[in-house]
Structure formats: structure tokens, C-alpha cells
Design a binder for these strands. Structure first.
Lengths: 197, 197, 197, 197
DNA sequence: GATGAATGAGTGTTCATTCAT
DNA sequence: CATGAATGAACACTCATTCAT
């Protein structure tokens, strides 16, 4: 899990090629032979680094999520209010997705796919419990309208993902900061009790 | 309403089996042999009704979208205000998804998949232009906060889909009417200018 | 075998369609479904008249050979010398092939193919023993150069078939009478002892 | 001489097995699974060396024709007269066919079959233009009777092929040299003007 | 007789994976 | 470490043939 640091050239080449191909063509339409070809390694080399094709996808998923997490928390703990924390998450999230569209797409495509092993998925989810905590706290502080915090959470995630789709589909990368501000307001106006700041 | 016209028994059995299997296992992990087995027909029969596996998926997509559309517009034209129209769409959408979880899932899984032929996709999209019109009208009437109506649209769809996920994941089907009211409020409070009804 | 006389419409349509398709596309690249489609009958109808696809080909072969034989002997028994008899055969053969190119091609394609049942083949060969007799007679009469009459026979057939190919490939149907005279001379000059007429 | 360069063992085994099976059973009645079985390789191995079944047949055709050509020209350019050149071709042709009956049969079966790709066919035909040249030269030198050189050509080829059939069908391999002399005389007496040597 | 929906064995081909070099 | 030839199970799809109507 921590070999991330100094990846052998070939391993990295394989993962990069696979990320591109999986997002462009899908997992099952991407033969391992094509991945090794694009990565300019022999077919056997792929299986030297990854026992199976699924292990390769697991690794990409884990790394992408790790990077996403790192981007997500930038400035989070420095934000003083719940509203600020949420704004930070919202902006970080959109910013990262726009800068790393393949990784973002990869996560969305495979987050609910049975291709990702349950084990990896659980490991990864642990990194994000701090968000659940934030929503619970907000609920308890009566900042949010009455509703299951999980519903609020899903509402936020969905809206953020929708915004990313919007930006990428319409090529609005250069306006993404403004859009993420707009989206955060849409969300906050829905979620927060009137009069809360 | 449930069938286009009068589908032959076997054709229907194949489509039903395929719908279940595709949503449970995915398109590429579902061999046609398994579909025909579950549908209790011979392998050749599947190809008697659908020239290719892709034509089968196209057919399921088209029918599901057609049924969704029919559910969506119930009471839509009878709603007098834009707010009422949107509430109707939101509730109809969630209601249909909760009643037809496989078809809902099928549409979400395959709506952006290249497996669906472009031709079918275009045919289908035409049925939903009335929603674009509604958003444009709302924008022009200055009912919505300033933002691209396409962003508002994506925001709504994402939120609704998020709500469906929430209901289905948590087994809250019996509370779906209340949840959809909550979600509509989340959306409306985000989207509409303050003071608009 | 003698139902040839009054063929039911559909049976004839099937045989005609099959003759064309088999010569154009080959036996194995011609599905029975295509034959019935071209013949404008249902798939079951083909198998009503012919127990199997192979029986269909046998029937076409037998009929074609029968017609060929009938064309071949026109004027044969009226010819007085061996040379005249051979000229008659040569000319009749080319004339028929040029007028019935599909049937000629069909015979050539399938004459040595295992697709034709041995039984049919034997039945058919019997009709042509009169040619063997002619060659034996010619050999015994010391009209031909010394060589196995079977070699002479194959030499003649090959040359005649070559001539048919030449005419059909080059679209020289209108010159086929002259060509067949030329070819007969080529053959005769090869076969007959010098000074024989 | 026997192989293009140094063919891998398995590739050669596949081609040999396929040559035998295709001539014995025909192209469409020979499943690739049977070829790999006879060649004692896995099904995948066949497709490792030949992208498709058709590419396999193309390769066999090209190699057979290449070998045939090499056999055909032995002593050709050393022959001084047109008659000698033709005798050389006739004898070389029959000799090769008798020694390589499967390859000979393969060429005859597939030379006019659409299974062979047009590209391969053209490549191959180029090797044999020297024969056309010979016939044109003979025609222009007024050595041959008046007739289209293409007719003479077809007449020769047909006769030679007929002779090969005769030898192989009747098991006369040990007499093939004498027979080819006989056949050459049949041909020459037909083709050449009287008194030409 | 005539139909065409239904059958299922059989085909060409793919591709994740192994392993000798 | 790295290679790529070799493997064979699995797949989408075809098509001769049957049979209830």
C-alpha cells in the first residue's frame, strides 16, 4: 500500500496506461494486452506487478482515492466553521476533479462496481469517515434542516459530481472556481436552516 | 403500458431476464447463454428476437426510458406553476425509480455507456426535451438564481438520483413520498430565488 | 428422379434460387434461410421438398447433368464418323455451357465434391458411359495416338472446360461457335494420328 | 526451399495440418479446432500466428504458389527454343504436382475461390507473368496456330491439370515422366503450326 | 401443403494468465 | 526482472432442422 512512493518505471507506466484506457474504453473492453502495448512493456510484465487484471484496477482505485483524499483535506482543518469546512470540501473536490478528470471519472465509474474488491473498498472508505463526522456534527448542531444526515451527504456528493460533469462536458475548466462557488451556494441554501451562516 | 404492444412471451422473458442480469452483473459479465438460460429459451431464440447482444440492451434501454417518461409526465401538464411542475417531476421520478429499481438502475448504468447505440440514445432523448423547456422557461422568468439552466438541470437530476440511491440503499421505500418532498425542498431552496413560490 | 416433369412452383423456385446462390456464393456460404428468402417461401417449405440441404444440392446436380446429357447427344448418333461424333460432342458441350453458365459452373464446382452423395453421382455417371465407349472404340480403331484412352478422355474434357472458362471469362458468347471449332481442332490435332480424318 | 525462412515449429505444424485438412475436407468443413488438434497446439496458438482462418488459407496459398513457381522455372531460362521452354514448363509442372499432390490440389481448389484474398492473389499472379510473356512471344513469332494466346494458354493449363488428375487418380506416379512427355506432345500438336519445331 | 418461431450443437475468435527462457 | 509464445476456457453468434399451427 505504501509502495506508492517510488514506483518502478514499468509499474507506473502500466497504471497510467490502464487508467487512460479504462476510462476511455471501460474495463471489459480493455484487454491486458492493449494495456501492456500502450505501456510499452511485455504482456508478462503486467502480471509480474499485478497478480490479476482486477488487482490492477484495485491499485488504480486505491491510489486515485488516496490522491483525492489528500486534495480534499487541504485547508479543511484550518477552516473554522462548519460552513467553511463544507465550502472547502466542495471547492477542493471540484478543483481536484477538474485537474484530474481521468482519476475522477475512474472513481465514479468504479466506486459502485463489483470489480473493485470489497477489501480495497473498505480500506479506502476509512479515509473518508471525517466527512461523515462533519455531517453528523452539523446535524446535531441543528445547523441543517431536519433530515437524515446521510441524505444530506448524498445530496451534497451528487450535486458536486453533477457540477463536475457539467464543467467537463461543457469544457468550462477555466470557470470552475466560480461554478464551484455557485454550486456550494445551491447546496448550502438547500441544506442549512434559514438564517444560518 | 407495461409492454410496447403485445410482445411475444419469449421476447418478453428474454428482456426481463436480461434486465435483471445486466443490472446485477453488468453487461460484459452477463453471457447471452446465461440470459437465455434464465429466460428459459434456447440460445438461438435470443438471436431470433435481437440481432445482437447490443440490440437487446438497446431495446431494454428504449423501453425503460419510455416507461419512465410516461410515469414522469403524470399530472405534469395539469400542474399550474413552475414550482408545481418541478415538484411533480421530482416526485414522479422518485416514485417510478422506487417502484422499478432495476429499470432505474439500468438507465443510470447505461445512460452514458457507449454500449447503447447513438441512434437509440437520440431517439430517446427527444422524449425529454420538455424538461429542458421547463428549465429554460424558469430561467427566463427569473424564478431561478442566476446560473446556466443546464447547471440547474444537472443539479436537480443529480439530487434526485442521489435520493433514489439513498432510499434503495437504506430500504426506505415506504418513506419515499416523504423523502421526495424533503428532496424537492432541498432542491427548490437551492435553485429558486428567495421569496419565490 | 422423374418428378422433373411437373415440378410444383415452390420446389422449382427453391431449386432455381439455390442454383444461383450456390454458384455465386458457394454451398457453405449459402444458408438455407437465404435460399428460401430468395425463393420467396418459408424456411420450412425448403425442408418439405428436400429432406436436407445436401438432398437439395443432389437434386440440382442430377437435373443439371440430365439436361447436359440431353444437350450433349443431339445429333450424336446421326454423326457418321468418330471424328464427326467427337466434333458433335465438343460443340454441344460448349454450346450448352455457354447457354447455361450457372448449371455448367454448378457441375464443375460440385462434380468432384464430397457434398454430392455417392449414390447420385453413380446414377449420373451411367448416363455418360457412351463417351467412354466412343474413346475405347477410337483407340481400338487405331485412330488415336498411342495412349491410355482415359488420358485422351481427360485431355478432351479439360480442354473443353478450359474453352468454356475462356468464353465466359472474356464475354465471348457470341463467338462461341467459332471458338468451339478452333478448340476441336486443337484437340483433334493432338489426339488423332497424323493423316486421320 | 521448403520454408520461407525459418518458420517456428508450431506455425509450420499448423500450416501442414491445415493443408492436409483443407484438401481432404474443404475449407468450410474444417473447423479451426480440428486444425489445432491435428497440429497438436492449443486453439489460441493458431490465432497467435494467423489473425483469422482466412489469413491461414492465404498463407498456405502464397507459400504453395511460391514453391510451385520455383519448381516451374528450373531449367526454363536455359531452354533455347520456345518448344523447349514449353516442354520444360509442362514437365516441371506435372513433376511438382505429382510430388506435392496436396499443394497442387490446394492451388486448384482455391485458385478461383473468393476465400483467397484479392491482395494475395494479385501478389501471387505477378510471379507467373513470365508465362504470359512466353505465349505472347510464341504468338507473335507465328509459331502457334491462329488463336488468342489466352485460349492457347488456358488449353495448356487445362491439359496439364487434366494429366495431373489422371496420374494421381490412377496411381501412375512412377510413369509420370512418360505421361508428361505424351501430354506435351498432345498439346504441342494441337497448338503449333504444322512443321514447327 | 405451407409457415416461421424455436432449437441447440457447432464455429471462429478473444484474452487473462502462465512459464520457459 | 522482463519477455512474449503458448494456453484453453469462454464467448457471441450462425444455421440446418423440427414441429405446432
Amino acid at each position: 500500500m505504501d509502495k506508492t512512493d517510488i514506483l518502478p518505471d514499468k509499474k507506473e507506466a502500466i497504471m497510467n496506461a490502464a487508467l487512460l484506457l479504462f476510462t476511455k474504453r471501460g474495463f471489459y473492453q480493455t484487454p491486458t494486452s492493449l494495456i501492456s502495448k500502450e505501456a510499452k512493456v511485455a504482456t508478462g510484465t503486467l502480471f509480474h506487478y499485478f497478480k490479476t487484471k482486477e488487482e490492477l484496477i484495485d491499485s488504480i482505485y486505491a491510489i486515485s482515492k488516496k490522491e483525492y483524499k489528500e486534495a480534499l483535506i487541504k485547508g479543511f482543518y484550518e477552516s473554522s466553521t462548519i460552513k467553511e469546512k463544507m465550502r472547502t470540501l466542495c471547492k477542493n473536490s471540484i478543483r481536484w476533479a477538474v485537474k484530474n478528470p481521468e482519476k475522477h471519472m475512474f472513481i465514479r465509474l468504479f466506486c459502485s462496481s463489483p470489480v473493485i474488491s470489497g477489501e480495497i473498498r473498505e480500506d479506502v472508505e476509512k479515509r473518508f469517515t471525517f466527512i461523515d463526522d462533519l455531517f453528523s456534527e452539523a446535524s446535531e448542531s441543528e445547523i441543517f434542516t431536519d433530515a437524515d444526515p446521510r441524505l444530506h451527504f448524498i445530496f451534497c456528493i451528487s450535486s458536486i459530481n453533477g457540477a463536475c460533469d457539467y464543467i467537463i462536458e461543457n469544457g468550462l475548466q477555466d470557470k470552475s472556481e466560480a461554478i464551484s462557488e455557485t454550486v456550494f451556494n445551491l447546496i448550502w441554501d438547500g441544506i442549512a436552516k434559514k438564517g444560518i451562516n
